[in-house]
Design a protein around this nucleic acid. Structure first.
Lengths: 224, 224
DNA sequence: AGGAGTTATGACAAAAATGTAAGCTGGGAA
DNA sequence: TTCCCAGCTTACATTTTTGTCATAACTCCT
C-alpha cells in the first residue's frame, strides 16, 4: 500500500485531500508543523509527497531541496500561483509534477496515480529485465526466456550474459569478462572463459538463438 | 544519451521540436507514418515518446495502448484539445504527462527532463543492488557482499534472497517462494523449500549474518 | 504433559556445474 | 603453401548443487 505525506498549511484543503486519498486506499499523513517536516518524513517514509509551495515558515522549494538530499521520493507541488516560472522551478528542483489550485480531486488522483505507477510499478518490472532480440533475461530469476521457452542459466552463464547484455552492440574484452567472473583468481586458465562462452552459446543455440554472441578476434565478444 | 521518438502529423511542429531537442543533446526520431509506428518504435527503442493525440490515421490513445502492451517507456501526450477529460484519459491509459498546444519549448523541455530523470536517473544505481542491514546483493553478479567479504550464492539461494530483499520487512509466503523458484513443477516436496532456506541461513551465518531470515510460522519467511 | 501440525537438520544419491587438458579449426602472415 | 595463433570443441575428473528422506526440534493447542 502507498503512503502519502501532505505538507500543507491550509487545513481545510489538507483535510479534504487526505480524506479523499484515504477513501482510495492510500495511507495519508499530514503535517503543518514545518519545523518537523524532516522528522516526519523519515519516520513514515512516504511513497509520495504532496508539497504546498506557499508555506508560512519556509516555502515548498526549500523542503524539496532538503528532501532531495537524501531521497528520490516523488514530489508533487501544489500552488495557487499560476506563473510558469514557478512550475518550471518546481520541476527543475527535482519535483515530479505541479498542480495548480484550485484543482479537481479527480485530476489530483489521476496525477498521483500516474506518478506512483511510473515510480514504483513500472520500474520494478523493467529493471529486472535485460533483453536483446529474441531473448529476455529476468535478472532476479537468473533465467532467460525466448520464444522456445525458459532457459535455465548457471551462475557463470548468467554473469556473462548480464555483462554482454549491459553492453550490447559493444565489444566486451576477454579481460573484462575474466575480471568480472573470477575477480582476483588470476591463476585462471584463459581458455576457461572460452569454454564458458562455448557452453553459453550451445545453450542458446539449443533454444533457437543462434549466432547471438559474436567473436571479435583479438578483443572479445559482442552481442548482435 | 537519450533517444526521443516524436509521433506527430503536423510537420511544422515536429520540426521545431526535433531541432530544439537535438540542440539539447537528445537523439530524435520523427514519424508521421502511423502505420509504421510500431516498427519504428522497435527499431530505435526510444527512451521517451512524444505522442500527438490528434493523428489522422489512428489517434494517440490507440498508439499508447499498443506501445503499453510491450513497453513501459515514458509517454508524453501533446494535444490542442484542452478538455480535462482528455488529459485524464491520457494519464489513465499509461501516459506520463500531457502538454497542451500551444506550449512553450521551455516547458516541454522541463517536463521531458523531469520524466527522464524520474524514469532513468534516479533508480539506475538502486536497481542492481539490493541491500539490507549488513548485506548487499549485487544482482547482476549473483553475489552477496558483507563485512566478512564476498559470499557466493547458488541459483536457488540467489532467487530466494532476491525475493526476500524485494519485500524486506514483509512476510513472504512459502507458497510464493515455491511458485517463484519452481514455477510449474507442482510435484516439488514442500520441505525442499525449508531445506533451501536452511542452506541459505547457514551460508549467511558462516559469514556473520545471523538471524536475518526470520520464520513466520504458518505463513513464510521475512527479513529483519 | 501429551499430541498435532509445522519447521529444522543431517545424510545421501543423483544431477549439474566447473576447471583443465588435449586436440582441432580456420584465417592470416611469412 | 606452411606455420602460427587465437579461439573452438570434446572429454573427463572434481566439486557443487539439488531434491528427498528420515528424524529431530519447536510451537501452539487442549
Amino acid at each position: 500500500m502507498f503512503t502519502i505525506l501532505i505538507v500543507e498549511d491550509e487545513i481545510k484543503i489538507s483535510n479534504i485531500v487526505a480524506k479523499e486519498l484515504k477513501g482510495w486506499g492510500y495511507e495519508v499523513s499530514v503535517t503543518e508543523d514545518f519545523q518537523k517536516v524532516e522528522e516526519v518524513f523519515l519516520e513514515i517514509q512516504p511513497h509520495l509527497v504532496l508539497l504546498d509551495i506557499n508555506l508560512p515558515y519556509m516555502n515548498g522549494f526549500y523542503w524539496c531541496e532538503r528532501i532531495r538530499r537524501h531521497s528520490n521520493v516523488p514530489i508533487v507541488f501544489l500552488s495557487s500561483r499560476t506563473e510558469t516560472m514557478d512550475m518550471m522551478m518546481a520541476l527543475n528542483m527535482g519535483g515530479d509534477d505541479f498542480i495548480q489550485k484550485p484543482f479537481s480531486m479527480e485530476m489530483l488522483l489521476t496525477k498521483i496515480h500516474a506518478i506512483l505507477r511510473r515510480t514504483y510499478t513500472y520500474h520494478q518490472a523493467e529493471t529486472d529485465i535485460l533483453s536483446h532480440r529474441d531473448m529476455t533475461l529476468h535478472v532476479k530469476k537468473a533465467a532467460l526466456t525466448c520464444p522456445a521457452g525458459e532457459i535455465e542459466l548457471t551462475k557463470n552463464e548468467f554473469r556473462i550474459l548480464c555483462i554482454l547484455l549491459e553492453q550490447k552492440n559493444e565489444v566486451v574484452m576477454r579481460d573484462e569478462l575474466i575480471a568480472a567472473l573470477w575477480e582476483d583468481e588470476h591463476f585462471i586458465d584463459d581458455n576457461t572463459l572460452t569454454v564458458n562462452i562455448n557452453r553459453l552459446r550451445r545453450k542458446l543455440s539449443e533454444h533457437g538463438l543462434e549466432e547471438y554472441i559474436q567473436t571479435k578476434k583479438g578483443q572479445g565478444y559482442m552481442l548482435t
